[in-house]
């Protein structure tokens, strides 16, 4: 993929220069090659290929994700492993009481977000908190709390390498349509939609930043900027603030619908969480 001709109103803010990203690199983590390029699924209208955000990062940032010791996100997986076995709540249960080993949750991340038994669309954080409040009778964790980020990182890791594959039909369809509409809706004072950057201009530079497709297969992500793990909804919030819009709340129905649509745009890409980004 070459730096492409700039075609939208973003042009004034876009600069073709420095990015030392190696877009031809293969992501090999601990000997396993992850899928970072896949043919675009049929429901994604304006892309021919879907690309992991990893491809858009610099050599140094890319390298951090190829080794599970060098990846600073993994220490938070270690913390979640400790929590996994800790009894919490009135029911006297730990995660391990029902799920035994975390590996029993392999594949879960690929299907998130997912419609629950009551027909509501839930993100992984919602499922974790349902376990905590219903089964463990413990306090729910806040969306962006360290405990929640650690746990979603641990659960995501169990699916690492498996392709994203969310359901978008049946009871999920209306949520998916909602998310899709949001993706193409312009928000905020800068009057920009997700698509303006991540569909029309991926591969281009926005100031010194190399625009990716905005794929979410790597979440929760260890961002160098955050110096820690962050959720998908935190990134959405950041994007909305950048375009000077009033962001939706983390955990809101809006963000969860958008998450479903974005997850479906990444169908076929490997789960990478916890990935490393700039």
């Amino acid at each position: 993929m070459k730096i492409r001709t700039i075609t939208t109103a973003l042009a004034a803010a876009v600069l073709a220069s420095v990015a030392p990203a190696d877009e031809d690199a293969d992501l090999v983590v601990e000997g396993e090659t992850l899928i970072t390029r896949a043919p675009a699924p049929a429901h994604v209208e304006n892309l021919t290929e879907v690309l992991s955000g990893w491809l858009f990062r610099s050599d140094e940032t890319q390298a951090l994700q190829t080794d599970d010791f060098d990846n600073p996100g993994m220490i938070f997986v270690d913390q979640a492993l400790d929590t996994w076995d800790e009894v919490d709540g009135a029911a006297g249960k730990a995660c391990a009481s029902c799920h035994e080993d975390p590996s029993s949750l392999a594949g879960v991340r690929t299907t998130m977000p997912k419609v629950n038994e009551d027909g509501e669309l839930w993100a992984m954080e919602d499922y974790v908190n349902d376990c905590r409040t219903t089964r463990m009778e413990a306090e729910p964790w806040k969306w962006e709390s360290q405990d929640m980020l650690n746990m979603t990182a641990l659960v995501s890791l169990q699916s690492r390498g498996m392709p994203m594959n969310v359901a978008i039909d049946g009871p999920a369809q209306s949520y998916w349509e909602q998310g899709k509409e949001m993706y193409y809706t312009r928000y905020g004072q800068l009057d920009m939609a997700c698509a303006n950057c991540h569909e029309d201009n991926y591969g281009n530079m926005i100031r010194a930043d190399h625009l990716s497709q905005g794929q979410i297969n790597g979440f929760p992500v260890y961002r160098l900027k955050w110096a820690g793990l962050g959720s998908i909804h935190r990134r959405f919030k950041g994007c909305m603030e950048n375009i000077r819009a009033e962001p939706f709340k983390r955990g809101s129905d809006e963000f969860t619908a958008l998450e479903l649509y974005l997850a479906s745009r990444g169908e076929g890409l490997s789960v990478e969480g916890p990935s490393v980004r700039n």
Binding site: A13, V18, C197, M205, I206, R207, A208, D209, L211, K225, R235, K237, G238, C239, E241, N242, N278
Partner: peptide
């Protein structure tokens, strides 16, 4: 070391 100022702080 050149330190870039990102376009999308987020």
């Amino acid at each position: 070391v050149k330190v870039t100022i990102g376009g999308c702080g987020g």
